[in-house]
Design a protein around this nucleic acid. Structure first.
Lengths: 177, 177
DNA sequence: AAGTGATTGTCACCTTACATGACAATCACT
DNA sequence: AGTGATTGTCATGTAAGGTGACAATCACTT
């Protein structure tokens, strides 16, 4: 211990962002856990507020996840009483997922948890610094072609998440993750 | 589509950091993949440069991961020819993990990949903005009590990663996740 | 020197989560 | 009516991480 002068990667943006982001994600999940909500469930619920009655397929498309994985997620949320499945009148194959009052309350509860989480992350940063950080992150998010509010982990976990710019066809993927 | 004005969480620091960080992690892994290295393997290799001859337990402690998971990781890296196990003279239970020349070359290769990755993330940001972002992230990392160069995902995945500040004893964890 | 507990590396088992492919029901279109 | 596509669902396989136990070795005591 007390050995190397922190390798160069440790202060690089790719690692730093991944490191801090992973922690922020853990924090996010940990703060939501007492309410019994997973981050991805909250994503669905949040996407449901205001425009209730979207089908599972529409939700899956909006969040960038596969419809198969949406089934179990809706199951849990319906069991928790946050949403309900209603047969669509236009398309009797589809279910309209409607937010229940309890679900709306939950979204409000989670939303109320965000400011304290911000405080935990911001620490001693000045309001100006905080705003600058958010602004810079939004720019980086745009550079990385991220859709606002859509978390990359909802998509395929590690499957061709980022196409290499120079490598021709990196479909080998025999490597780990 | 073209529906809600991006929910408030989407521009919050917890989500934004997690979102951008997840993408950065995917990018990091994707760029390392052509070399056949996983991010965690690189973490071990990087920790080995300069102070070669650390035992698996020391490496596990340094990176915050469990020694059981280190076994397979060292297996892969030894099979790849990046490291070799040597019986420790002081402690014949332990293996000294020594970096091979090929392993040192690999670390250099990965290090050379970082600047292009930075460019992908930085985008059109000015050098001043980039430096400001790194500086702010370092401060946030310190606030979150992150050790430089140690990625949270090497530790327990989502198990009590962040102790709640207000909740007394959240070991219930009967909730999904 | 022998004994006791702790430590190191290893292995086997279990659980979880994700991806894949197939299926019945329904739609859109001919 | 018929054909292909779509929606939700389910069953399967696969990969990764966590847990507990084990032989070998160490550190310490008596």
């Amino acid at each position: 211990m007390s050995d190397l002068p922190a390798a160069s990667y440790a202060t690089s943006l790719p690692f730093l962002l991944s490191q801090v982001g992973a922690r922020a994600g853990q924090l996010f999940a940990a703060r939501l856990a007492p309410l019994g909500v997973s981050p991805r469930a909250f994503g669905v619920l949040s996407n449901l507020t205001g425009t209730s009655g979207r089908t599972q397929q529409q939700l899956a498309d909006a969040l960038g996840m596969h419809r198969n994985n949406m089934v179990g997620l809706i199951d849990e949320m319906e069991a928790a009483g946050w949403v309900r499945r209603h047969r669509s009148a236009q398309d009797r194959r589809a279910f309209e997922i409607r937010l229940t009052p309890a679900g709306a309350v939950l979204v409000d509860q989670v939303t109320a948890l965000i400011p304290p989480m911000e405080a935990e992350i911001v620490g001693d940063l000045t309001p100006d610094d905080r705003h600058a950080l958010v602004d810079l992150l939004v720019q980086v998010a745009a550079t990385l072609q991220l859709d606002p509010g859509i978390h990359p982990h909802l998509r395929a976990r590690s499957r061709s998440a980022c196409a290499a710019p120079d490598s021709p066809a990196s479909d080998s993927t025999d490597s780990r993750n």
